[in-house]
Design a protein around this nucleic acid. Structure first.
Lengths: 156, 156
DNA sequence: TTATATAGGACTATTTTAGTACTATATAAG
DNA sequence: CTTATATAGTACTAAAATAGTCCTATATAA
């Protein structure tokens, strides 16, 4: 299925809400009302987004959360990473030594290639796109081989 | 993390092995030996790939599995779909009615856009690429807005 | 000083995934 | 036609990941 977690989904909903009024502070309780996501869950998501420097937080009375930058500069890849950690399709591409077959594995490099492609797809869409659905589309193109070799740089 | 399941990972390993000798029948027991994946697991994966028409099966003595087509025509997207079902990042994009906020959801269409981008990334890599690591790379490009409008066709 | 709001971490329940086992069916070979 | 071998299909169990909740600490405005 290649799913994004529910929390990540909530994160996009919450960020979309905040992005509508980018200059105001949004308290967790307000966001709960607006999004129908349970308060503890909203709170959890906001903390993660804050930690990832997508939101700034203000404590105390009249506190809340605020975007650290314009929605155009917040990429979907970043949101996913904030909630779920680094985007990597297979264990071996994040944790060295996680797989016993690692040394003899032929396809690790190819998974890295796939990771890259997926990551670029996710980086092409921003929070701004989520807020005001622009009919912009990311499209795959096969580049000439030779010119790309350096780009691959697959760690071994 | 945006993971592919372990079974999918096994599937790529198994298919890579088979693709090395595309004209021979490969029994589950042989593949176990070659890949160090447990027999019941190999068996499970092979059945799924067979059901998805990526492999042909031959029963009985001297039976086994065979690719249905050349490795160049087997896309990674298809392998993932065979093991995990349709590629969709969020629940709402596969199952209508799964989300209560569906009717008022602003970002569903955008998830469809993201799905599309990811799918294209995964379709750009084939089993042939996995077998003989070609230094080919898929790259994202932002297309002009107007020309793409028809392509989106986001169901509501 | 008090009310309010976030920070951080721990914990539990649920769901998903991985892995295994069992029975049925098809085929090649003696 | 019988037997050995291999896949088909399904059901079940165990393990891991995720979701969701709660509690205590800290910061800030009034």
């Amino acid at each position: 299925m290649l799913r994004v977690s529910k929390l990540t989904d909530y994160a996009t909903v919450i960020l979309t809400h905040i992005a509508h009024q980018p200059d105001e502070l949004h308290a967790a309780s307000d966001i709960t009302q607006a999004t129908d996501v349970a308060l503890p869950t909203v709170s959890k998501v906001l903390k993660l987004l804050s930690k990832a420097n997508i939101l700034n937080s203000h404590r105390g009375s009249k506190g809340g959360y605020l975007l650290t930058r314009t929605p155009k500069d917040v990429h979907v890849a970043e949101i996913i990473t904030a909630i779920e950690g680094p985007i990597a399709m297979t264990e071996c591409t994040t944790h060295t030594g996680a797989c016993e077959q690692e040394s003899s594995c032929e396809i690790k490099g190819n998974w890295n290639l796939i990771n890259r492609a997926v990551y670029m797809a996710l980086e092409a869409v921003t929070l701004a796109d989520m807020v005001a659905p622009v009919r912009q589309q990311a499209v795959m193109v096969n580049m000439p081989l030779k010119t790309q070799t350096n780009d691959l740089k697959v760690e071994n």
